[in-house]
Design a protein around this nucleic acid. Sequence first.
DNA 1: ATCCAGGGGGATT
DNA 2: AATCCCCATGGA
Length: 284
Amino acid sequence: MNTIDAPDFDLRLTLDSGQVFRFRPHLDGFLVNARHRFFYVEQRTDRLAFDGVESDFLVRYFRLDDDHAAMIRALEFDPLVSDAARRFRGLRIVRQDPWECLVTFICSSISNIPKIRMNVESIAASFGDPVRLGAERSWQFPSPGCLDDEGKLRAAKVGFRAKYLLAANERADDAWLDGLRGLPIESARDALMALPGIAEKVADCVLLFSLDFTDAFPVDVWIHRIVQRSYFRNRSVSPARVREWAARRFGPLAGYAESFLYIEARERGSQARRASAKGATASG
DNA sequence: ATCCAGGGGGATT
DNA sequence: AATCCCCATGGA
């Protein structure tokens, strides 16, 4: 098995942060699907051991060429983000395949992580070619143009999103998506939002997780909550205003700020749930 | 402005 | 075991 340097990188944290959905624990690491690739990767302190993939791909995919330490230093002006960045050091933004990311986040609207995982696995299984790594078997993610069967999409339990996936399949391809990289973020976002089933939040996820717009700041319910509470004295602010606020405050690091705030908010949420469950059985 | 499309999972009753 | 609530798009 080959290895590469991966300083300031936490594999489990990154895979588990709601950016990617096609991976599963295996041996001491993970089996990961990324478009047509199917590979094994395992963290050994400051290195990654891997099989079934090129090291160049891993560097690009996990953005190991980003200067993580410099990014964390640049966020020090914000105590909340900076504290989360210290506690969750090594959480990276991934650089996914844009088409797979687009399909995944169309599935994500008004849904949740376990269901999104089930949707994309099911789509890969019914539209994708088989792929194997040693004895392990999986399916490649289908290419643009292949998601042309509404019945099979419905069978993947995507529900009302089936028609959005059909439209994306008609109107998006690899070249068009790659072409968005060179645009100003507003233009790229507008281009994605011209597709049905894609509003601001989903567009920002595609921009951040696949098209190198590290200034994108997807506002989901967790981000919305923690930003309102921590920066707007708990006053209600629209998602659009939260997005604009983040762009001004964090600039090109907004995406990284969001990743740290997101897992901070998730952790607080699960703590709050545990506390209230405990409080219900105790005296209060 | 409100409701619903479709659906799994967790919490609550 | 049945029933709410969550999720954050678009159309009626």
